[in-house]
Nucleic acid binder design. Structure first.
Lengths: 151, 151
DNA sequence: GACACGTCGTTAGCATACCTCACGATCTGC
DNA sequence: GCAGATCGTGAGGTATGCTAACGACGTGTC
């Protein structure tokens, strides 16, 4: 099956930089995560935003966009999709007419508890195959990465 | 600015699982990486595939797709773009008429050494802000993640 | 009070990056 | 030889980001 090794003119082995290895790892895992399909039509981006609302409570679209690290226009579409699914709802801001408050509905809460866990089953299985020390490394890495990406 | 804390009916704080935290970190860093634009018209996906060819040597489109974790049709377009840029070239497989061998051109090698580093400058800067122990954590995490995503 | 200016959310339009389905060319086992 | 598998590709669809521009609303200044 592997052909590369048999071809003359092959590159020598390199020692890729940490940046290269981390980038590749992140890009790949991201692809895998997106590829995990449940039969529901809710996408990873939507789940991510919904989880954020679930964990942090009601907030404005702008705050949600900031937390997820996307631009406000991108979040608008995500919120609209969640609203269409009946998992989130918008209500007017009590004092500022420009803003709105987005919150999780009861259906949204049920969905987070059930489907989101299902969605993360693939990753959970992978994590379960690791030993405790490796999970600890990933836990610390998640925190470091989040800090790097966060700002 | 923060409004969520003031709203009644707020969720209690949860302790997100490792899967949740890792997913969010990966999704976010991935967004940041893709948002980094160099003036060149080569995308992150193309760079990723080109780096793969550079590091592993010539291989068939199918093998490259498998290594990158995408479906063959997706890789076809990436290879076409790389070929158009003059960074990769296709030649017929010596024994199997169905397959082809994709390899990096000299221009592609030069590009990997120069532009890819430029592309990774943002990440490099972030990594430089960490201490040695944190970089070691990320280095180990990159290896673990790659193993999880790889298969 | 009126007007200028800032902020917030949204709409519109675009680019990228995946996917699945379908097809033609080629190889292989009987 | 011929049926079926395999490989690469074309077509079309969806998701996910972005920027630019706009309308609604709030705020400070006179």
């Amino acid at each position: 099956m592997r052909y590369a090794n048999d071809v003359s003119g092959r590159e020598e082995e390199h020692e890729p930089s940490l940046a290269s290895r981390l980038r590749l790892a992140v890009v790949r895992l991201n692809r895998r995560l997106r590829a995990q399909r449940t039969d529901s039509s809710v996408t990873l981006t939507q789940i991510s935003a919904l989880s954020c609302l679930y964990n942090w409570g009601p907030m404005t679209p702008g705050e949600l966009a900031a937390k997820e690290g996307v631009q406000p226009p991108s979040m608008t579409r995500v919120i609209a999709a969640l609203e269409e699914h009946g998992f989130a709802s918008r209500r007017p801001h009590p004092t500022d007419g420009r803003q709105a408050i987005v919150e999780v509905t009861q259906a949204g809460r049920d969905f987070v508890r059930a489907e989101v866990c299902a969605r993360e089953r693939w990753l959970d299985r992978r994590l379960a195959d690791l030993d405790e020390e490796e999970r600890e490394v990933l836990s610390r890495a998640a925190e470091i990465i989040d800090r790097m990406a966060g700002q």
